[in-house]
Design a binder for these strands. Structure first.
Lengths: 135, 135
DNA sequence: ATGCATGCAAACATTTTGCATATTC
DNA sequence: GAATATGCAAAATGTTTGCATGCAT
């Protein structure tokens, strides 16, 4: 075992590549099942479990953003780095990334005030975008 | 059918009372299963389905706050009226209600700017409270 | 008496896991 | 060749639903 062989370096497999590609092609947040459907539809033979496992891994590694949809499913998307939130169209899934520096400041103040440490937050916005509102 | 008998007025049953009481006694957010366990433990014969149905109803009626925990479950708690968020201790569940007027303002601006309508948001904070950090 | 509420069990949807096999390193 | 990744199917979870019966109104 060499130092480049340390556990944690994921192996480069066909499936992993396919999955990462599928998520990148997706302009909206997609669930593991949706990614799986897409891949199968495109002729890939990936297993559903592999999609679940791989997406989790990529999200844990910070290569993907994971959110929990209002109905409880987990959805993934390739995002720009750094902490940010999302404004998502309920109808078409169109997503806008938003960063709210003032919120982060506010949270630090809140945490200090209430004596809480390691405060994390997750904030997503759901609305209807212009195009969908018009339809 | 009289005017006081309109559909929508839930019936006053023993189970409904027990469930509402159990949630009120709980100082933290609790899932349907937890409420059910508690009631069964206290000798009640309520069915799990009834607990699910009733909690959903109470939340829909605005009598309870419902949140989705980080691991995807739905949890309920009796809360003060009006829009607010929660700062929840990951360890003991202790909950502080917080309202962030500036956030609401910010959202309206954000919605207008991006052309989104009916923007909803859900925001909860998870941290470790002083007592739990000390332990 | 009417009909909503309950309880049970079965159905469901999503996600996780065990294990034999295939693959990468 | 050693160890991880995959695929499949089974299991686990959390929640919902169908239906016969009970209870509130």
């Amino acid at each position: 075992m060499t130092s480049t062989d340390r556990p944690g370096s994921p192996r480069h497999t066909r499936q992993r590549t396919e999955i990462r590609q599928a998520v990148e092609d997706q302009e909206t947040f997609a669930t593991a099942q949706e990614i799986h459907d897409r891949l199968r539809h495109d002729g890939s033979g990936v297993g559903l479990a592999t999609v679940y496992r791989t997406l989790q891994g990529l999200a844990a590694a910070g290569e993907l953003d994971a959110i929990r949809t209002p109905d409880g499913q987990v959805a993934y998307r390739t995002c720009s780095p750094g902490h940010h939130h999302h404004l998502i169209c309920r109808s078409c899934g169109r997503t806008v990334e938003v960063s709210i520096p003032s919120l982060e400041t506010l949270i630090r103040a809140l945490a200090a005030e209430q004596g809480f440490a390691q405060v994390e937050h997750e904030l997503e916005f759901y609305g209807t975008c212009t195009d969908c509102a018009r339809a």
